[in-house]
Design a protein around this nucleic acid. Sequence first.
DNA 1: GTGAAAGCGCTAACAG
DNA 2: CTGTTAGCGCTTTCAC
Lengths: 343, 343
Amino acid sequence: MPTMRDVADHAGVSIATVSFVVNNTKPVTAATRSRIEASMKALGYRPNAVARALASRRTRILALAYPMLDHRLGGSGMEFMIAAARTASTYGYHLMMWPGANDGRELTELVGQQLVDGVILMEVQLDDPRVAALKATATPYALIGRTADPSDSLHVDIDFEQSTSGAVQHLHDLGHRHIVFVTGTQDRESYYNYGPYVRTERAFRDVTARLGVAPVIIESGQDTTAGRDLAHRLFTECPDTTAVLVLNEFAAIGLLTGVIHRGVRVPEDVSIMSMLTSDEMATYTQPSLTIMRSPGTALGELAVHQLVQRMTKGTVPDPVLLPSTLVPAESTAPPPAIPYGRR
Amino acid sequence: MPTMRDVADHAGVSIATVSFVVNNTKPVTAATRSRIEASMKALGYRPNAVARALASRRTRILALAYPMLDHRLGGSGMEFMIAAARTASTYGYHLMMWPGANDGRELTELVGQQLVDGVILMEVQLDDPRVAALKATATPYALIGRTADPSDSLHVDIDFEQSTSGAVQHLHDLGHRHIVFVTGTQDRESYYNYGPYVRTERAFRDVTARLGVAPVIIESGQDTTAGRDLAHRLFTECPDTTAVLVLNEFAAIGLLTGVIHRGVRVPEDVSIMSMLTSDEMATYTQPSLTIMRSPGTALGELAVHQLVQRMTKGTVPDPVLLPSTLVPAESTAPPPAIPYGRR
DNA sequence: GTGAAAGCGCTAACAG
DNA sequence: CTGTTAGCGCTTTCAC
């Protein structure tokens, strides 16, 4: 691997001059510049990222910290990651995955290594020790989600109020008056005070109050199996239900398939709407789910934009809440049944 | 941020000695060691990863290169990423996501920066320019998947022969004699010669020949919509079908829901088996899919193990093919139908 | 416009 | 066992 030294010798200039053209950081005669460029090409020179980082005190690496909770990332979590990595690379940054515990200690370690210029925190909790840790180290960061403290700046998040009221309003417009809201079970340490649960539930109470319908709220686990169980619970506990709003996409899929499997028709008998969901998940069922689509990709891009702006311009962009989009289930003309009965 | 210099001064030793205890690289008296450790704690010292990397010529960063194809990562792709990141961190390595084009050029750039000690290549194609690029730069790498060239060492992959024959054998044991194999459409540049397609199809031909049944193979797109269309195509093109083997999990879900939606019973009328699938995907339908479970997590761990062994010990581990596991659909006692007809 | 030189913080001989 | 010292490859003043 040729170094800058080699290039300088080859071009008959000083190492400093090479640096100037590589970084375009000082004026250089067109003649010498092209001579240097020729040498770089001839030698196949590539600047050494590590040396550059040490000297310039910037690594051009961003960390994406996602807590290793017991649950898997949903579809939009994945969208988020991919979008963030792609966006980072357009800025000339690399994205490092950082699967850490949910406490601040490990994060402090990571940041102390000075390997990353900034950190993106996914799945921020209302009371998140990682945010405090990050603040203490003065590392630039961006939050996906919000803490309870409104002064924790630079976050992007889903607009839960908009999502929830949009969903409820839609169902209400369709004539539904008995709407059940299914939120996540909060008995676990990590989910207690989980922002999306708290904010969505609050929004649900608000909008139902506004519309003058009773807020029925039940808890459920966050996977398809739990959702399947709901299919039973729902009709015993809340027999009047005509529409269900499910906070978790996995649970929503379980509920929908479970309900259909029991001979209940969707949406004729009951409407099901899945919140915080990606397009992809909606297609897994038939009929497809009606969803409030999470802006996963947009969040990923935005988070990186914001963070980079903070690091380079030094300004702290305003928090942004992105709306969810209502995506109705594709209307399924009932297909011709296939007479089928061999074996 | 205190440096090693500060620690040395504080402890009244030389910078070298501090380095020795930090890296545990030379014997140091218990007395001085503890004095140094005390100083480190007192000052809150953390070694600077960049300086360390420059001096030692190892960054302790691994790159995970995944091609940004048009398709999304399946469930096991995600499992893989998470497992790889976690395993890397147990070795003291960081994992950097690298969303690159599918050609070798960008990869050469990345490696030229000398920011990573090794590269893991996901979704390796039978004829993959990235592998050639990597070989040329002499960077340690591990492949997920295989090229056509058996001398491309250090790969881990799914044992497609085992997966396929296991699946077919299972169906055959159940009495099926008309088994359709659904592979991916190969008209796209990026999928042409895609290893999993090629190997699985070959294995299917082999095992059906061995069992004396006719190999029926049809192509389909790789998403739920395409799978849904299959529900129709299948019964017109191959009316004798009693079992279907679907290579893609999204297509499998589409097929299953589509078929059920048309009044065909699964598995009474037709059996559906999804290949290369994660547990998670199997739960999205009801009845759940019978799957050959991909060893996504195991692959992720193994790939990192292998790569690290190559980098540290210098030995090149033997390729490993991991088997898939047959996970039958959970037997669904038909639930009591719920009389339901309000609204 | 170009060059000399002093670091960036740490590792790794080599001496002692 | 501990200290001295020469880099690692590049950025960045400060002179010229």
